[in-house]
Nucleic acid binder design. Structure first.
Ligand SMILES: [Zn+2]
Ligand SMILES: [Zn+2]
Ligand SMILES: [Zn+2]
Ligand SMILES: [Zn+2]
Lengths: 154, 154
DNA sequence: TGCACTCTGAGATATTATATCATCGAGCGA
DNA sequence: TCGCTCGATGATATAATATCTCAGAGTGCA
């Protein structure tokens, strides 16, 4: 399965997921999603804006931020808080497509920048347990693990 | 033990910790640390700058960011990535004072803003295990748990 | 004295994100 | 058809966060 194929699959699933929820993946939003998916690493909003301007000269910061907000809301992308950058959700459509906000974690390589989304239930459960012990009602957890990826270690 | 007393204790321990490592907690750095500790919630860099200007009119963004960098480096404060704000390390000096960067997590209340640092070994171990399974060499993990605190739930 | 080093001052600039108001078009009922 | 509302986008300005760069002051040391 080629990269392009997985991208097309992801886009189709995104359309479907939005439809199910009564949300609209407009051409603009779809284009921003494509730009995020095309990048091979997390992308900043202004990098997206630059690329967007190639085909949409009038684009401005709110253009891209509004699209990003929508995509975040729909769970189609995630924000990496440490990097102020955005990345496509790897799990969208693979198991819990209808979950807007599934628990997830990121592995961020400081050497090559590669960023991998994982869904580790051990981590998720440990966080739930810690919150429960503190009498804290968990809404969402940000987990960003920085270090060196397997490729860079080899 | 009063709040002021714990603050003074924290400052003394900070001095001691810096000394041990051959780092210098200069008056400026100490003052920024005091400002962070005095706040009853995470503080933004520009809020610190405003307060700093009261006694140090020439202060500029680099003044506060340089101090924050030092304090982060020394493990005396932490940054909350979701909030772009800084908070004093609760654990400095209580158990692993000499650890520059101990594993830690935050519970952030979306209702009242209260932010609590915890050191949950279950979470820490789960993250280590997840990284290991991915062949990833962990350097540092950001864990920020958002939701509603016990007080706001009551 | 001369030099290296750390810290701070000062100004400019870069980067990330939001506020506000106007416009456009689809949907829809009167 | 008209007028209304609503969601989406265009367009401009501004806010909030963070960094770059050069200069000067102090300290310790050869
Ligand atoms: Zn995901
Ligand atoms: Zn790597
Ligand atoms: Zn801490
Ligand atoms: Zn609360």
């Amino acid at each position: 399965m080629t990269q392009t194929a997985t991208r097309e699959t992801a886009l189709k699933e995104a359309e479907a997921a939005c439809l199910r929820r009564g949300a609209t993946l407009t051409p603009l939003r779809r284009q921003v999603l494509e730009l995020v998916l095309d990048a091979d690493a997390p992308v900043g909003a202004y990098a997206l804006l630059d690329r967007l301007k190639a085909t949409r000269p009038g684009a401005a910061p709110p253009t891209v931020y509004r699209a990003l907000d929508f995509l975040l809301e729909q769970g189609l992308i995630h924000k990496l808080e440490r990097l102020n950058a955005y990345i496509g959700c790897t799990d969208a459509g693979h198991g819990h497509a209808h979950d807007h906000h599934h628990p997830h974690q990121f592995l961020i390589c400081r050497t090559c920048g590669a960023t991998t989304e994982i869904t580790d239930h051990g981590v998720a459960h440990a966080i739930e347990a810690a919150a429960r012990r503190a009498g804290f009602a968990l809404a969402e957890a940000t987990v960003e693990i920085e270090g060196t990826c397997a490729r860079c270690l080899a």
